[in-house]
Design a protein around this nucleic acid. Structure first.
Lengths: 112, 112
DNA sequence: GACTTATATAAGCGTCGGCTGACACAGTCG
DNA sequence: CGACTGTGTCAGCCGACGCTTATATAAGTC
């Protein structure tokens, strides 16, 4: 599953935001998400699984609880992709890229 | 449609990468995408529409051709969301956030 | 060991997004 | 004007994903 597919779901984004506030148990996350989205405990558990399986969340067992926290792997992957385009709105990073993107290619390869 | 829903599709991501190389006509994009993904012209056109409608691509007519280019609006929105988490892997940006994330909250609100 | 709590898994179902094929429409060229 | 090219739209189909209910598993408590 691609990083953006994971982030495409609003529930999963919310869960990550919750985890950004610090490690939280599955129960804590479930309580909040359940209230905000009106979905069941299994639904939340399934979302947590997706986050785990795709490098967005770490888990650690503590007794019967599962403590979740942010795993940066997935987020970095998403960030790396977006990074390809950063020069478009932060031209100082690479002014040349912007110039190229502007229309150089269009001019060369058959533009007006 | 949320930015990450737009980016969740591999065809749309590819189209954006193509546009990152400079303005391109719908036909040029279609030719490449068709070859790489084996989908029809209408399929590509529909993806272009999604990109347009969600602030990921600009269009400009030139005769019968439609010239597409990157619109940063959508990309910046995606970047802004990811930015919430950047401190997790670039601690220098905000060392405090990392500390908080680590377990401070867990300790306070009922951790071990 | 029986009960309860915390969490995960499984099966089934509905919905939504993407694809195709058919078509519409604009512009260009003879 | 009529044919052709480039592109967009529409209707319908299909598969994937997310949800629910039911159930399994594991850990605590008495």
């Amino acid at each position: 599953m691609h990083a953006f597919d994971v982030l495409g779901d609003p529930v999963r984004r919310r869960i990550l935001e919750l985890l950004a506030g610090g490690e939280a148990s599955a129960g804590d996350v479930t309580a909040t998400v359940r209230e905000e989205f009106g979905i069941s405990q299994p639904a939340v558990s399934q979302h947590l699984r997706v986050l785990r399986d795709n490098g967005f969340a770490h888990v650690r067992a503590e007794g019967t609880r599962r403590l979740y926290s942010v795993d940066v792997t997935g987020l970095r992957a998403a960030d790396a992709w977006v990074d390809q385009f950063r020069a478009f709105w932060e031209p100082r990073l690479d002014a040349l890229a912007t110039e190229v993107a502007r229309g150089k290619r269009a001019r060369r390869s058959g533009g007006a």
